[in-house]
Design a protein around this nucleic acid. Structure first.
Lengths: 295, 295
DNA sequence: CAAAAGCTGTATCAGAAATTTCAGAACCTG
DNA sequence: CAGGTTCTGAAATTTCTGATACAGCTTTTG
């Protein structure tokens, strides 16, 4: 039911109908606070958030109905119904034409920086996933799911934060989880009780940090199993690591991107949580209950 | 690259959500004449025809409003609004996840889990970038590039690690950067020197943490500028935040994904580093030199 | 620091939309 | 072809939504 019938009529570069979403993004700064909340809600669930009733929209955005009305008026619509009609038509048009996506128009200055950065990060994630040996990933999941093991996370200057992130999740999913600071003075003493039952999960990327390497070598010598999350050039820790999961880290920045490491971390958390669900569920519920009691 | 090697193991047909359209097609014969007209209209412009008003739908189908009502009742809905809600949800679900179709049971092995998890995360990153207003991003970059400002990072249970990650980078790029623990006991005293010159960068996602909110509210009351990185539902901190950068966080896991927040963080680091390059470069070189001396 | 401007939510109203009622039309069925 | 059943739409009814007025509050400005 395409009334134009004209095929191959892409005369112009895909100028696209200037989406309402784009306009909102551009005008965002000129919005009042509650208009911004409305805009954020709409953009985050575009365009479905706008298809509900005014009351529903207002409540979800955390503002009042009149503010929503003012918002749509400000966008140039004569009323809420007209606004919804526009959204529906836009949605229908977009859904029916397979070109759909893209939206590379984005002239803005800041956007390109963010967009191209995201582009690169997404490329890293894809490359990371493709280069992980499934067996390796599974083996690590199995290792971290073994309740008899003790898990220790550690990392360097920047990656230490990722180790902490991992620890804060695993700590809830299972027992015997902790975080070890990278500085030798802080872990030397603890090494005495590291042994075969222990697993060290180390994060280490470029500008590999000697103290983290030393920690892993010591632990390995004591019989611990070392799991390493690193970059494709492999931290020296790889020599003592039982399992290595490399992630791509190059980004258009003066700094490396840790997004791939975070992806692996979160995927491990998800997999282990699922695998230990029987015991993890009550633990998560308990944590939740304790949090609520406090407040 | 199916490591299981077991082919032909499609235990169950790809059940998929039984679309309403399918059901209508199956029951078509049992419809009355005017119901058929309604059904045909709906199927021919599925599902958009159903998103209009009853009157509009009836008119387009060439039947009366009550017939439309009887039609939707017959389909098992309690009323027209419920019918529309179903259409919207079906549409949203279909439009938003052309990627990770098999999220439910998926007891599958490691690699599929990792791959589909990555799919979802990548989707989050794209959605995050698209929903960030360029002006908002730029404004935050400008704010964090102002050498006269003091920057404080903070976050909740899980997001605290991201705040640390941000801090460890910004600390090198510029001066006057620190990290504030979320617990009130740890920051109450420091608030005395927080004022107009200060910027609080807060990370807070679902299960918003009251102590972080309290910190931001206090700081805001003292005249500090608050920047918030949160999820699309917006932490209550948004109330006092000057700038809000929302990131999509839903992943096929029992946990939310912070990858979008990390992306924004790294993009901010990259942008600010570039902007302050004249002063950042010598700082980075100095840090490098100090590290080497130590070893 | 005071006045002004702007923003936002409460309460209220008008109107439109969905739903029900009911009588007439069409269609079987015997 | 009469009696009964089913289907259908006009009109009445009810519900609920979108819109507005106004007052309180916050922020800005002089």
């Amino acid at each position: 039911m395409n009334q134009s019938g004209m095929r191959g009529d892409r005369r112009l570069p895909p100028t696209d109908p200037p989406s309402l979403a784009e306009r909102i993004r551009l005008e965002m700064e000129s919005f009042t606070p509650s208009e911004k909340r409305a805009a954020h809600l709409l953009l985050s669930h575009y365009p479905f958030a706008g298809l509900d009733t005014v009351a529903e929209f207002a409540s979800r955005a955390g503002i009042s109905a009149p503010s929503v009305l003012r918002f749509v008026t400000r966008l140039g619509f004569s009323g809420f119904p007209e606004f919804q009609k526009h959204l529906r038509e836009e949605l229908e048009a977009q859904l029916l034409s397979p070109l759909a996506k893209a939206s590379p128009s984005d002239k803005g200055q800041g956007a390109p920086a963010l967009a191209s950065f995201a582009e690169a990060v997404i490329g890293n994630l894809k490359a990371t996933v493709e280069n992980i040996a499934p067996a390796e990933f599974d083996a690590v999941v199995a290792l971290l799911s073994d309740p008899r093991r003790h898990i220790h996370f550690t990392g360097g200057r920047f990656t230490g934060a990722l180790a902490r992130y991992a620890e804060s999740h695993f700590r809830i999913v299972r027992s015997h989880v902790d975080f070890i600071e990278g500085q030798p003075a802080l872990w030397r003493d603890r090494m005495i009780e590291i042994g075969r039952k222990d697993v060290i999960v180390a994060f280490d990327i470029r500008r590999y940090q000697e103290d983290v390497t030393a920690l892993c070598e010591t632990a390995s010598r004591q019989g611990a199993t070392v799991v390493l999350l690193t970059d494709p050039w492999l931290s020296p820790i790889a020599r003592v690591a039982r399992h290595v999961l490399p992630a791509h880290i190059v980004a258009p920045s003066n700094w490396d991107s840790s997004a791939g490491l975070l992806l692996l971390t979160e995927a491990l958390v998800a997999a282990v949580t699922k695998r230990l669900w029987e015991t993890a569920k009550p633990r998560m519920e308990t944590v939740e209950r304790l949090r609520n009691e406090r407040s």
